[in-house]
Design a protein around this nucleic acid. Structure first.
Lengths: 242, 242
DNA sequence: CGTCGTGTTGATGGCGTTCAAATTCAGTGG
DNA sequence: CCACTGAATTTGAACGCCATCAACACGACG
């Protein structure tokens, strides 16, 4: 019945977000207290899933919110035309399971082997209404996601495919920096099609953009799931050149 | 305290959002209690501003969050290239003033004469940490904005200018429905340039798209600030045809 | 009546989409 | 270890749409 003490930091539910209030330099991410993580662990369930598993479907009853402990997940929407749009890629300490009126707004699928925390929305709501500090962390997290979403909108507004792909790699690179790994080498757990569906480009355009960035000696696509950043300063310049 | 003496719904701070939990049909929007609105009114200040007034600038210290009581506001970003991107248009019961590390991420400007509530972020934070129910309403509101932002991303993904403009008019129409007004007639408090900057199109494309929608007898642009929806069903079909 | 900001129309070129076909890659089983 | 196989990726060619540049109209305001 009793949970083990002090769950591993990687595996206990935790959230990644830049606070909206001014914070000390080292407080770049919000941190849950051990007690809060224990509370979340108590109401939640830890799941391990293989790649390509559908976690939930659009329009189904939204009974849970999910926190990524390890691995990568994509959320996507099916448009009436049959096209798939990837709303977001989620990594360690990200939350997903956005709902409206008790229904999920998109579908979610694992990209890699993932470890998730599945939190019952009803119990979580009760918990949040009793623990304002915990809720504040969630508020900060959702605010963080809102910022990310607005950034994505700006990204999508770019007309040039190479610029969009550069921004995407920069994004993934920032992600990778948080999870260690050799600098300048970025893992891409998603397929080219997923990247295209995320960037709002055709698959072919993504590939041509990748070729263009290699031609410019900014990036080197070592293989399908690995990019090396060859010239970070020039890449940053291209990313900023909106 | 008697409910009858409630402050005017239009003017007291209030928030508009569809809840993420399943709710009764009539509970389509969240409602603050009178007590909560009084608390917000106590720490906040009511402002009346003329059109075209800059409310805050990108990168300046984010000391306040704003709630629209009446009127229309736009938030926008200046890109390095000098282009302006309109992040959002805000109307009655919307919240704006998104910050990161104590700095605003965009600028805000009034489009019409507006009445705002200006809430000091520090005091609001304290209030939220003491009143979990109130905070929950803010959480719901930010979640709502996140959904809106994701919808906008999908909107922007459309390639055809006419489709984007149709979606925009549909959006404004949904907005107008909440604030009364004759059905089928939609006010556009923003300029064509603003619409273009919001939709990620050139000004000329917006105008041509408008002409195209008139040619198809879907809309009639009565004047620069007024559209009439001529054929709602076909408009809806075009909007959905993503 | 002039002027400036806003809105409109026309012509051209570039870039991404689309359709089509070739090629590589990761499994799988022999 | 190697051949097989379907999926993912890559390359090529033509077309269409939107951005851009340029000229012009309109309307509010002095």
């Amino acid at each position: 019945m009793k949970q083990r003490h002090a769950p591993s930091p990687q595996l206990a539910p935790s959230l990644k977000a830049i606070p909206f209030l001014k914070a000390a330099a080292e407080t770049r991410t919000i941190v849950l207290t051990n007690r809060q993580r224990e509370q979340l662990a108590r109401i939640g369930m830890r799941l391990r899933l293989p790649p390509r598993m559908v976690i939930y479907r659009e329009d189904s009853a939204a009974n849970w919110i999910f926190a990524v402990a390890e691995g990568a997940v994509k959320t996507y929407r099916e448009l009436p035309s049959g096209k798939r749009v990837v709303s977001a890629f989620l990594f360690t300490q990200d939350l997903f399971g956005l709902a409206e009126n008790g229904r999920y707004l998109n579908s979610a699928q694992s990209l890699t082997r993932v470890t998730l925390y599945r939190l019952p929305l009803g119990e979580l709501t009760v918990l949040l209404k009793h623990d304002a500090d915990l809720q504040f962390q969630f508020l900060a997290k959702v605010t963080h996601e809102l910022r990310e979403s607005q950034r994505k909108t700006i990204l999508i507004n770019r007309r040039d495919a190479a610029g969009r792909l550069a921004m995407f790699v920069a994004l993934m690179s920032a992600e990778a920096d948080l999870t260690a790994g050799s600098p300048g080498v970025v893992q891409l757990p998603m397929s080219r099609s997923d990247i295209a569906a995320f960037l709002g480009l055709s698959l072919e355009s993504v590939i041509r953009a990748a070729a263009e960035l290699e031609r410019q000696r900014l990036l080197k696509f070592e293989n399908r799931r690995l990019v090396r950043i060859l010239d970070a300063p020039r890449l940053a310049k291209l990313v900023a050149a909106v």
